[in-house]
Simulated scan of single mutants.
Amino acid sequence: GDVLGPALQTSTRATGSIDILSIVVQMIQMGDEGHNRNRAGTLMLLKEWLPSLITSGLASSDVSDVVSFVSGNDHFFLNLVMPACKLMTRAGNGVAGSTVVTTMARNGTDFGIQVSGCGEQWFTGPAQLADGLYLGSYGPADANPDIGDSAITETAGIGGFAMATAPAIVRFVGGTVPDAIATTRRMYDICVGENPRWALPIMDFRGTPTGIDATTVLRTGSLPQINTGMAGKVAGLGQIGAGLVTPPMECFVAAIDALAAAAPR
């Protein structure tokens, strides 16, 4: 708004660069998984801004409003996690023949993926309904199929892939703590590697599973696990819950078919 944007611009310029990925490193060791739980990340970001906000010359009431707004939304840091993850995965796009998934996104109707070896080409299937916990009296009949760009977090190796580090998230998306740990273990089976910088304490500081391999998804039948918010299917209703969802297998079949067709003969 008229206060938040200018205030954060002033604070960021005064602070200098803020290492978003460094905050991610810390927050996944503090119980956040980077998609549906960003509480520690949001507070660490606010910590970076606070000194320059206080000395910015802004009215104290404006500073108070900014701090209240940011600290009052545990998902605030997700707004920066997503573009950081996109820049990471974008760097891996365009490698000839590569089956690594570089984008996952959904628009409430379709779910689409991109794989490195096919560049900007999309492979789509129907968006799925999430399975999870609903707010208030809402239920499955009120939910829209999965929607949003935030699955870029799982594409980069956090979110649902780092559920083991965020046991409290099961109170938000459903399931049990053993389920969360088992999910992370299962994601290692469909990834080409691990990110040692994003170390999971409960996994003896093993790096998060990173680099979804579309071929391995087909071979194992195991789909990427996404933590997601559930939007109401009536416009303006907003979020009605949170849960777990996977892409449709059709996306991966189509991607591998396209790579096979493009392979030198």
Rank of each mutant, 00 (worst) to 15 (best):
V177W: 01
M203L: 15
Y188F: 13
I28M: 11
L200G: 02
G236M: 11
M27V: 01
A168V: 02
G125W: 07
L50T: 10
P248Y: 11
V217F: 00
D74Y: 13
M88S: 12
V67P: 04
N144F: 06
A130S: 14
I226N: 10
L21C: 07
P126V: 12
A214C: 09
G241S: 10
V66P: 05
G119C: 11
D213K: 02
G108F: 10
P6Y: 08
R37T: 15
D2L: 15
S22I: 10
I147K: 04
T155S: 09
M163G: 01
T220H: 09
S60C: 04
T109R: 14
E48I: 03
L129H: 14
F77M: 08
V3M: 05
R219E: 11
L8W: 06
A180F: 00
I169Y: 01
S60K: 15
A199E: 01
E250F: 08
L129N: 10
D204T: 06
P178R: 00
A127T: 04
P51F: 04
G175H: 01
C118A: 15
T215L: 14
T109G: 11
M82T: 13
G119E: 12
I190F: 01
V25D: 14
A180N: 02
S64T: 10
A130M: 08
T155L: 05
I256F: 07
T10L: 13
G94A: 12
T210G: 05
P178D: 00
I202Q: 05
L223Y: 03
V100K: 13
S98L: 14
V95A: 15
V67L: 14
R197T: 11
I147Y: 03
I181T: 07
G211Y: 00
F76W: 10
V170W: 01
Q114I: 09
V234R: 09
E250I: 13
I147M: 08
R106Y: 07
L46Y: 05
D204P: 05
I169K: 00
M104Y: 06
A40T: 10
L45K: 02
M44T: 05
C85G: 04
E120V: 13
I28D: 02
F111T: 10
L244D: 01
D62E: 14
V67Q: 10
R39W: 08
T99F: 10
S116V: 12
Q29C: 06
S11C: 12
L129R: 06
N93R: 15
Q225T: 07
G241E: 04
S150T: 10
H75C: 10
A162F: 08
M249H: 09
T246W: 06
A231S: 13
T184V: 01
